[in-house]
């Protein structure tokens, strides 16, 4: 009984310790941001790793998600004779929800896991300690540029996802199923609001970018410096980011579209 209580207590303390370390880590990263922004070259290299390399999966997924939306939406709407609203259905679901959320999930799988593994291995091979010995702050040099890159790349990726998806839905709806081209776009433009829908989607993806980069970098920085530890940290990154993104999405949606 006591042993069980003790284990529970240890778990609890461990959880809160990690939570605290995570927030302290975030504060230190934020404090290191000005120094990172002073070196745009590091930022460009990270934007390439985080953004450009994720572009292909984002584009292909966006296209297929949009095409599926077009197909499913058409099948439902045609029963009501409202297939002209297909553009609205496709655009609203992409801009409000699927664009930010799915690209954040893909980002976690493609870029977040790579960030964790990279930083975890740097720690395991003592490169981070080596940097500190040379009086180079690894937070400024390694972590902060990656954080900024994630924050910048996420809204851009989500926007690309949404646009590719809208054209995917357009291709299926207008190109294959014969929805009227003019009605598709005009209904979409009449119903999608720049502020309510597009801006809020961008805000969502900024929040997701922030959270996904934070989790990925912290897991890497906090990983047990063994091959097993890095492996577990990478798994945790993907799982925790997915949970955080989906949970936050609910909260943000409740706040934005009440």
């Amino acid at each position: 009984m006591t042993a069980w209580l003790q284990r529970l207590g240890r778990r609890g303390i461990g959880f809160f310790e990690r939570l605290g370390r995570g927030h302290l880590f975030l504060l230190r990263v934020l404090a290191a941001l000005p120094a990172a922004l002073a070196r745009p070259r590091l930022l460009v290299a990270q934007l390439h790793a985080v953004g450009v390399r994720t572009l292909l999966i984002i584009g292909v997924s966006g296209l297929f998600v949009g095409m599926v939306l077009g197909l499913q939406g058409y099948n439902t709407l045609v029963d009501f004779g409202a297939e002209e609203s297909l553009g609205v259905v496709v655009a609203l679901s992409l801009v409000r929800e699927l664009g930010p959320v799915v690209s954040a999930l893909l980002f976690a799988g493609r870029a977040g896991s790579a960030l964790t593994a990279e930083i975890g291995l740097m720690k395991a091979t003592e490169q981070l300690s080596g940097m500190e010995m040379m009086a180079v702050d690894p937070l400024e040099r390694v972590v902060a540029p990656r954080f900024v890159a994630g924050l910048v790349a996420m809204p851009l990726l989500a926007a690309i996802f949404s646009v590719v998806g809208v054209y995917g839905g357009w291709f299926v709806g207008v190109g294959l199923l014969g929805v009227d081209d003019g009605a598709f776009w005009s209904q979409m433009q009449a119903q999608v609001d720049l502020h309510d829908d597009v801006y809020n989607g961008v805000v969502k993806s900024l929040v997701f970018g922030f959270v996904a980069s934070w989790i990925a970098l912290f897991e890497g920085y906090d990983a047990v410096p063994t091959s097993e530890g890095v492996g577990r940290a990478t798994t945790r990154t993907v799982v925790h980011t997915a949970l955080a993104v989906l949970g936050l999405d609910f909260v943000l949606t409740a706040l934005m579209f009440e």
């Binding site: 390439h48 926007a159 646009v163 999608v192 609001d193 989607g201």
Partner: peptide
């Protein structure tokens, strides 16, 4: 090449935001 790729990525992202603003929603209408 890295810099060109990043430039193209950022331009594509901003372009996508622009399309969302102008074509998907209707800022001018």
């Amino acid at each position: 090449t890295v810099e060109i790729a990043v430039g193209a990525f950022v331009a594509a992202g901003l372009g996508a935001l622009f399309v969302l603003a102008m074509k998907v929603s209707s800022i001018g209408a």
